[in-house]
Amino acid sequence: MSLLEIRNLHVAIGGDEILKGIDLRVNPGEVHSIMGPNGSGKSTLAQVLSRREAYKVTEGEVRFNGKDLLVMKPEEAACEGVFMAFQYPVEIPGIGNTYFLRSALNAIRKYHGDDEVDAIDFLPMFREKLKLLEMDEKLMNRSVNEGFSGGEKKRNEILQMAVLEPKLAILDETDSGLDIDALRIVAKGVNAMRSPDRAMLVVTHYQRLLNHIVPDFVHVLVDGRIVRSGGPNLALELEEKGYGWIEGEARQAVSVSGY
């Protein structure tokens, strides 16, 4: 059974159809990259999978671990093992990072009937993950993302992923706005999380990130449809030729098939 199974997914926002029939299967242990030009629907797909309500599914289905993902609330999807690293992480004044992360971890543990982790047991595990992402512990005494640089925010997303240990990690444009050093640290964190029971969906516009996080599969999304799928080489090809050629091909395909 696939971990994530998307069938003929159509999604609209405010009456505009953004996704026009996506099919995708992701198995445990696999890293899939979703690439595509701006406005192709990449982020919409990520948002729908993390259960943002503003997006309306008009057709199709999504099964996660055999369960219907589309009836889940965001917190249920999270507890089932879906994690989204946001493109623009929110600043939440007044809530300490450490407190927030421990609350999240305990909410998920509670959902699975596990005991909550107290502050003392939490700390050693937490410190280890901080080290992995080369983050200063002082940042953790501050409010969630408040006053963080762009790179710190992205690293904080991966830190949360490392603590919450999801089954499916969705990285939404995690590379945007990162300098090469920050990118390496983020990629190191992500790669450390790769395991046979965990799948990843790496959403990105540029191939750059994929030099560091090498995917098993690359899918190209154009105008709400996956127009091509392939191995890591497809990303290199896109980097070289740009999205123009594939968009042109997609348009041709559409006109030939008469849609």
Binding site: I95, A107, I108
Partner: peptide, 22 residues
């Protein structure tokens, strides 16, 4: 902020309470 907390597994009521407490 509410969605961010929920996306990390915290239920809506608790998330609201956390934000009000903050």
């Amino acid at each position: 902020a509410l969605f961010y907390l929920q996306s990390r597994g915290i239920d809506e009521m608790s998330a609201r309470r956390i934000l009000l407490l903050a």
